[in-house]
Structures are given as structure tokens and as C-alpha cells.
Amino acid sequence: MNLTLQIWRQNGPNDAGRMVEYKVSDISEHMSFLEMMDVLNEELVAKGDDPVAFDHDCREGICGMCSMFINGEAHGPDRGVTTCQLHMRMFNDGDTIYIEPFRAKAFPVIKDLIVDRSSFDRIQHAGGYVSVNTSGNTQDANSLPVPKADADKAFDAATCIGCGACVATCKNSSAMLFVGAKVSQYALLPQGKVEAVERVKNMVHQMDLEGFGNCTNTGACEIECPKGISLSNIARMNREFFVSALAGE
């Protein structure tokens, strides 16, 4: 198929940026979206033009690196996939496709479609861990049974890939789905309970410092999340946060 691409080009954080039109032809429906972008970039390089910069790595939907806002949706029109797993069969011959970076105050553009998501890392530094050293003599893994339902829910929360689709989607640029998922994972497991009160306070505080907005329960993040992280994680984080406030001295 033949397509028209409208792509956000921005040379650096201080460049104003603009949409630029490109044409690609003979695109196979079996290609992934990023393979279509590879075709474009090979053509641009051959012509001596600057290829479109975009983040990508594993190309199997798990590293969380790819981050395109396609036709107004994070990771494009398909559900439950990242951009690298989006396939061209979702589009039709003659389509015009709009491709932009994940936009948020806390995700400044580095170049073209690449944004800086280090704010996510800093939220994790604030408490996304259990304080246990590598000693080689922690207690036996089976000495503390975990109800299967809790373990499964913790796992579901922990499958967040940290891509930032939730933030890009949210009209408030809220990171509460991301933070709620990490808080939930630990809150549901006995290993995480010891530090639960401090963790939620510190992570929420850092989230606010980074300039993410608040949650107004539209639920758009859950729909656009490539890993189906549930909105209930935000509710759990709010409960944990209230508990931590009550536990405060």
C-alpha cells in the first residue's frame, strides 16, 4: 500500500518543531509499524536527508522503549500492543498517518519522536524497591506462602513496561497508572508491606515534583495501556496513600 506520513520533526529540545509530510510506497500489510519507519529512514539516508529519530529496541513489546503517538493514540489504533507490535494491516492504502512523540511536560522532547522519560526512573528511585541486600542467605523462597490471587494481582501490576503511554494519553498528563502499578505490586506482597507506608508517600511526592498531573478518572490510560494495566491499581494506590496519611505522626 501507499501511504502519506505526517511526522513531527524537532531538532532538539529548544527547536519549535513542526509536522513534515513524507510518502512511502509498496508497504506490505505484514510489516510492523517500525519496519515501515525503517523503510522511510533508509530512503531518507539514501537521499542524504536526516532520518527520523525514534526510540525502539526489543521490537517485541516488552522493553517499553518505543513511544509513538499515532493518529492521536499512544501506540496507534490497535489495542494491547506497543508501536513495535502494531502491524500495517491496521491501515489502508492511501491513508494519511499522523505520527507524534509522547507529549507531556514531564517528558521533554529530545529529538523528533524521542522523549526524555527519566522522570519515571526518578519516581522509582524514590521507593520502587524492597530494601533487601544481596546476602545469599535470605530466607527460603517457600517459607512465606503468598495467596495465589495476591501473587497474580501483583504480577499483573508488575507487567507495566514503563513506556509512558498512560501519561501521553491522559488529558492531565497524569502518571498515576504507572505509579499505581508499582505501588500495588509491592503492597500486595508480604515482602513489600514492611515499607508500604513510606513507599507510597515518597513515590507520590516525587511524581508531583516531576510535574505530572492528577487523575480525574477518565480511564483513558487503561484503554491505551499496551499491557492492560488496570485502573484498580490507581484506586489501590489512593487507598495506600490515605493509609499512609493516617499512619503519619
Binding site: Y129, V130, V132, T134, G136, T138, Q139, D140, A141, L144, P145, V146, K148, A151, D152, A154, F155, A158, Q185, Y186, L189, Q191, G192
Partner: peptide
Amino acid sequence: IDQCVAQGVPFAR
């Protein structure tokens, strides 16, 4: 395995 469980890695149960 002991170390990872202590860190809160949610293995299948």
C-alpha cells in the same frame, strides 16, 4: 530464587 522473592519478584504460585 530466595533473593528474587525477597525483592518482591512475583513468581507464579
